[in-house]
């Protein structure tokens, strides 16, 4: 279901410096898929465009959605001031999400970098229904020892950490963590900054395994109408008939070998 609605903030807390964790009560939780996202709107009428934020988690009875976001500018700074009980304008649920079936019975890497870590949580949960917990290898990268969501992730798989400053786990990035721990997998699912996604695309091509990556682009409509958020594709896209797919509707998750990043 796609709907714009005024939902209610169930709770909000600061998870790490500049990183916020908000639970939103909404019936959109009912059919939310891992890797899908919400567009969140500001109350400030000078900042009109939606802020796309990934769904981090869905609660047990599917009545609330969790988002974890970094203060990056005006919009996210406003969201961080919201208290429990206050309204929040959201449009959702958007995008295709990760297809967990491709990992049925397989060994998986779930790779998240920085603010790309949050969507890995609901994904890890969902994967537990299709493959054994020891097959779920969650490789996450952070700047420093602010390893937000680590405890949540540990419930659903084996967690490996990389930090840029070396304060926790492997010093370096997620690729270094794979190497240091001599890990291997049959399929990759990832979200994070572009250099990380490019490295994963290269790794997956060498290892000849599929990688599903979640992409970001500036958005206006979030629903596929404006053609603002495209990514170059190898094949002509079925909708556009040119080598461009819409990240908001055809993605945000793409098989790495199909996109030119």
């Amino acid at each position: 279901m796609k709907q714009k609605q005024t939902a209610v903030v169930a709770s909000q807390r600061e998870l790490a410096p500049m990183i916020y964790d908000m639970w939103i009560e909404s019936d959109l939780a009912k059919d939310a898929l891992p890797g899908q996202f919400l567009c969140v709107y500001t109350r400030n009428k000078s900042t009109l465009l939606p802020r796309p934020i990934s769904i981090c988690e869905v609660n047990e009875d599917k009545s609330a959605l969790r988002i974890v976001y970094r203060i990056a500018g005006q919009g996210t700074a406003e969201f961080a001031t919201y208290k429990a009980g206050e309204p929040v304008e959201i449009l959702g649920t958007l995008g295709n999400g990760f297809n967990v079936e491709v990992a049925a019975g397989k060994k998986v890497f779930l790779m998240g970098g920085g603010i790309g870590v949050p969507p890995m949580l609901q994904l890890a949960k969902a994967l537990n229904a299709v493959t054994a917990k020891e097959n779920i290898q969650i490789v996450v990268g952070y700047r420093d020892n602010q390893t937000f969501l680590r405890e949540d992730l540990e419930k659903y798989g084996q967690v490996y950490i990389a930090t840029e400053d070396g304060s926790v786990g492997t010093k370096g990035n997620v690729m270094n963590a794979i190497e240091e721990n001599a890990l291997q997998a049959d399929v990759i699912m990832a979200c994070g900054p572009m250099p990380m996604l490019r490295a994963i695309k290269g790794y997956a091509e060498n290892a000849d395994i599929p990688a599903y990556i979640s992409l970001e682009e500036h958005m206006a409509c979030g629903v596929g109408a404006c053609l603002g958020c495209v990514v170059k594709t190898k094949e002509k896209d079925h909708h556009s008939h040119v080598n461009n797919a819409r990240i908001c509707t055809d993605g945000p998750v793409f098989e790495a070998k199909e996109v030119d990043i």
Partner: peptide, 28 residues
Amino acid sequence: VPWPGNPTPRVAEVYGGMLNAIGLQNPG
């Protein structure tokens, strides 16, 4: 004929509005 449009970013927010340079991407 189909037009591929412009490179991204194609949209940006400005005070009380937005900028776009989609470049008329269309399927023909």
